[in-house]
Design a binder for these strands. Sequence first.
DNA 1: ATTTTTGCTTTCAATTCGATAGCAAAAGTA
DNA 2: TACTTTTGCTATCGAATTGAAAGCAAAAAT
Lengths: 139, 139
Amino acid sequence: MKKEFRSGCPISSTLDVVGDKWSLLIIRDMLLKHKKTFKEISYSDERIAPSILSARLKLLESYKLIFKTKVPDNKKENIYLLTEKGIRLAPIIIEFSLWGNSNMGEFNEIDDIEGLNSDKSYIMQSVQDNYDSMLLDFH
Amino acid sequence: MKKEFRSGCPISSTLDVVGDKWSLLIIRDMLLKHKKTFKEISYSDERIAPSILSARLKLLESYKLIFKTKVPDNKKENIYLLTEKGIRLAPIIIEFSLWGNSNMGEFNEIDDIEGLNSDKSYIMQSVQDNYDSMLLDFH
DNA sequence: ATTTTTGCTTTCAATTCGATAGCAAAAGTA
DNA sequence: TACTTTTGCTATCGAATTGAAAGCAAAAAT
């Protein structure tokens, strides 16, 4: 399951964990859209295949960026939630969004994500705070 | 050469361009270590294969994150330099570094990158300014 | 004139990706 | 209770990508 790290560089090590085409999109949906189930995460604009989603969730769980739980009245459905480590990816996600907005317009028509283009540090904090308060519903 | 974008999401679009295991490491070396030639970039801790480096440089050039030039006294050696678009990836690189430092210690021994863990906005600015002033040597 | 360096390209086996289908257990419905 | 549907996956398998190694032509160095 786990791969070797290519070096001790923190940038390289972060890439070894979330440096693929899907992991940060899964975390985007969890963090910004508060998606919590396999099904919710499946239905994104980019349409991740279930086999890939399954593999990524396992990987993210093994690195403790997310954890799995259930709600009492539903024995089937898994609830995936971000850990503190995962929530702290907010600045990376937001910088990706800002950079994409400013620099990709030439190559692709870029959607506007509401409220993600104002004061950077304020946004980073409030995204994390929002997720934290949502987490309280699950103790 | 160029792929389709999976959606109009700026996060997804940025991932479509630099969301692989190597591109951001190449940009790290150019931006932080001021590497400029194929050979210099080849000799990183992570040892990128020449076929991959060649392909990535072409891709990054096609998206105008880097450009290729030469110095007058050397007809062989290509000089790769970051464009403004490329330099503006500094915040992403730095957030990757900060996150890796804080969150990957449990799984990998993480090197200290000198001076990259102080005031965030100061660092982001000075990394870009440093690169800009180096660029002046090439007009 | 010869050797070395540089910036690649080619090859090819191995790995990963990803669309589709399948499936068991739980939940919902009649 | 029987049935249908939903959910959260796993299995399959061809296609695409990766990456180690070797090769190579042009330029530079000796």
